[in-house]
Amino acid sequence: MIDLGPHAVFIIWAYVGSAIAVAGLVGAVLLDARRVSRRLTTLETQGVRRRSDNH
């Protein structure tokens, strides 16, 4: 590992904080996608269809 000098703590926390925020953002987007996907699957298994799907 390179020597980050006397201000290493600021550099490390900038990257760690960014990594946590990016991971949280990716997780939130994927979780939302999964939740909506389950909601759609439930509706479709209940036999609810759009009018355009019936033709």
Binding site: V26, V29, A33
Partner: peptide
């Protein structure tokens, strides 16, 4: 590119959410 990926995925989810809302209204 991270933004482009997440924006695209979030747009797909929003389109599907609106489809689900439409189906719920229909039900």
């Amino acid at each position: 590119f991270l933004f482009l990926v997440l924006h695209l995925k979030a747009m797909h989810t929003e389109i599907r959410r609106r489809k689900a809302m439409g189906l719920e209204r229909r039900a």
